[in-house]
Design a binder for these strands. Structure first.
Lengths: 170, 170
DNA sequence: ACTTGATAGTTACATCTGCAACTGGATAAT
DNA sequence: ATTATCCAGTTGCAGATGTAACTATCAAGT
C-alpha cells in the first residue's frame, strides 16, 4: 500500500486515461487484459449461477444447446469450431446432455469415427425455456448502452480476439 | 431444429447485428456474454503463456506484483479488493511469491491477524522487466483502436461489470 | 492389401478455482 | 475479566479445465 507517509514522496503519475498507450506506466486498474478478464468473469458468474440452479446446465452445455438449436445436428468437431471450446470440453458437455436425454446421437454414415449431435424434443423444450432468459440477461447487462455502442463493443471484442490469436503465433 | 434436409425450408433470420437487443432470436455468435468470454479467454491465454514461460508467474501472481509495485505494501485483504480475486487465490499467489522471495511480509502492528506484503528488491526488478512487456502486449492488442475507442471500451467493460454485480444480487 | 500418417472422440492426469470449514487474533458488551 | 461475535488468513475438498496419451477410423501411397 502506498502508506500514509510516502504518499507525498512517491513520483507523480502524469498520464491520464486518454493518453496513447505507449509510454504509460502500468496500472492494473486501467490495464485492458485485466479489465476484460474481470468483466468477463463477473458476467460469466452471473449467467453460470442462473443456468446452473434453474436448469442444471453448465455453460459449455448451454453453448451446445444454443448452437444445436440454431444450426441443427452437428458433429462434435463442428461444435468445437462454433463454440471455440476444446474437444474435451465438448465431449464432456455432450455426455452430460446425453445422460439427460437432451441430445441424441445420429450415426454419421459418412465417417464412422464421428456422429452428429441433435437436440431431442426435451432438449428443444429446454432451449425454448432458456433462450428468453438468456436474452433477458443480455439486455439487462447492456441496458446502459445504445445500439450502436453495442455493435461497436461486439466489433471491438472480435478485434481483441483476432489480435490475441495473432499474438499467440508469435 | 434444422436437419440436413430442411435447411432450405428454415425461416429466414431478418435481424442484423445492429438491431435492438429485445426481440432478437438468440444466436451464440452475437450473444454478448459469449463474445466477452471468448475474447477474454483468448487474451488471458496469450498473456498467461508469456508470463508463465518467461517469468514463471501465474496471472494472480502477476496481478499482486503489479498492484504492489503501483501502490506499495498492502494486506492480503486490500489486495483482494484491488484485484477482485478471492482471498484464497490471493493467499496462494502470495505463497508462491514468498517462496521465490519476490515479496516479503511486514508484520502489521495494528492487527496481529494480518500482515502487509511488500515487493523485495528482486520483486521490483522482476516488475521492471515484466511491466514493459505487459504494456507492449496491451498496445499490440489495442493496435486497431483509436484512443477514444479504447477509453470507450474500458468504460463499457466497467459498465458490464457493474451490471453483472447488480444482477447477481437479484 | 498394407503400411503410414492424419483425424474424431475418449480417457487419464495434473492443475486451477471456489466454497466452506477452521484457526487465531480483534472487538464489543456486559 | 469473560463471553460472544467478527474478521484475516489458511487449509481441505469438490468441480471444472487443459494437455497429453490412447483408440478407432479414415485416406493416401505403394
Amino acid at each position: 500500500m502506498r502508506t500514509a507517509d510516502d504518499r507525498l514522496t512517491r513520483t507523480p503519475r502524469p498520464e491520464s486515461e486518454s493518453m496513447p498507450t505507449k509510454a504509460r506506466t502500468l496500472r492494473l486498474q486501467h490495464y485492458l487484459p485485466y479489465r476484460l478478464s474481470v468483466a468477463a468473469n463477473a458476467v460469466s458468474r452471473v449467467i453460470q449461477l442462473a443456468y446452473e440452479e434453474r436448469f442444471g446446465l453448465t455453460i459449455p452445455q448451454w453453448r451446445l444447446v444454443a448452437v444445436l438449436a440454431d444450426e441443427g445436428p452437428l458433429t462434435q468437431q463442428e461444435l468445437c469450431g462454433r463454440t471455440i471450446m476444446d474437444k474435451v470440453t465438448v465431449t464432456r458437455a455432450a455426455q452430460g446432455l446425453l445422460r439427460r436425454r437432451l441430445v441424441k446421437r445420429l450415426p454419421n454414415s459418412a465417417d464412422g469415427r464421428s456422429h452428429r449431435l441433435m437436440l431431442t424434443k426435451s432438449g428443444e423444450a429446454l432451449h425454448a425455456e432458456v433462450a428468453p432468459l438468456a436474452l433477458d440477461y443480455e439486455s439487462k447487462l447492456l441496458a446502459g448502452l445504445k445500439p450502436e455502442e453495442i455493435a461497436k463493443l461486439e466489433q471491438h471484442l472480435r478485434l481483441l480476439e483476432r489480435a490475441a490469436a495473432e499474438l499467440r503465433k508469435t
